[in-house]
Computed example of a mutant assay.
Amino acid sequence: MANTLLSIQVIPRTPDGGDSIPYVDEAIRVIQESDVKYEVHALETTLEGELSELLKIVERMHEALVKAGSPSVISQVKIAHHPGGISMDKLTEKYRP
């Protein structure tokens, strides 16, 4: 079982003040390629896995956004770390229909 939930909202600066959505899409692509469980929400994406693995994904996201042309990236990150195990499903099951 995973020991960490990490929620991230990337806020990429765009070179020309344009739309940031293509950069957000690129960040989500990095997550998709990582093979961890994740859920995309309106304002952030939550990942489930091992702490060290998730932090490496955040690093790859930042690297990908810079490579895509963003001059800088701010991320707001929330981490819930439970060595005994944690899951998105368990935390939210009582709210699901």
Rank of each mutant, 00 (worst) to 15 (best):
M1C: 13
M1S: 13
M1W: 04
M1F: 02
A2T: 09
N3K: 09
T4F: 05
T4D: 08
T4P: 01
T4R: 03
L5K: 04
L6Y: 13
L6F: 09
I8N: 05
Q9K: 10
I11Y: 06
I11W: 01
I11N: 11
P12V: 00
T14D: 07
P15F: 08
D16V: 13
D16C: 10
D16A: 08
G18N: 10
S20I: 09
S20E: 09
I21H: 14
P22T: 07
P22D: 13
P22F: 05
P22S: 10
Y23T: 12
Y23H: 12
Y23R: 05
D25Y: 06
E26V: 00
I28T: 03
I28L: 12
I28G: 03
I28R: 02
V30Y: 03
I31G: 02
I31Y: 05
I31M: 07
I31W: 00
E33V: 01
S34Y: 04
S34H: 00
V36L: 01
V36T: 06
V36D: 02
K37C: 01
Y38H: 09
E39C: 05
E39I: 15
A42W: 13
A42R: 15
A42F: 08
L43E: 04
L43G: 11
L43Y: 14
L43F: 15
E44N: 15
E44Q: 05
T45F: 03
T46V: 15
L47T: 01
E48K: 07
E48H: 15
G49Y: 12
G49D: 04
E50N: 06
L51E: 08
L51K: 11
S52V: 05
S52F: 09
S52T: 13
E53L: 14
L54N: 13
L54E: 11
L54P: 10
L55N: 04
L55E: 11
L55D: 02
K56C: 04
K56G: 11
I57C: 08
V58S: 08
V58K: 10
V58H: 06
E59C: 02
R60G: 06
R60Y: 02
M61F: 00
E63N: 02
E63G: 00
V66M: 03
V66Y: 00
K67C: 00
K67S: 02
K67H: 03
A68R: 09
G69F: 09
P71M: 12
V73W: 03
I74V: 14
S75I: 01
S75V: 02
S75D: 01
S75N: 01
Q76S: 11
V77P: 00
K78V: 01
K78W: 03
I79C: 03
A80K: 07
H81D: 11
H81P: 04
H81G: 00
H82K: 14
H82D: 12
G84N: 10
I86C: 12
I86M: 11
I86R: 04
I86W: 05
I86Q: 12
S87G: 14
S87Y: 11
M88K: 14
D89M: 06
K90A: 14
K90R: 15
T92Y: 11
T92G: 03
K94G: 05
R96T: 13
R96N: 06
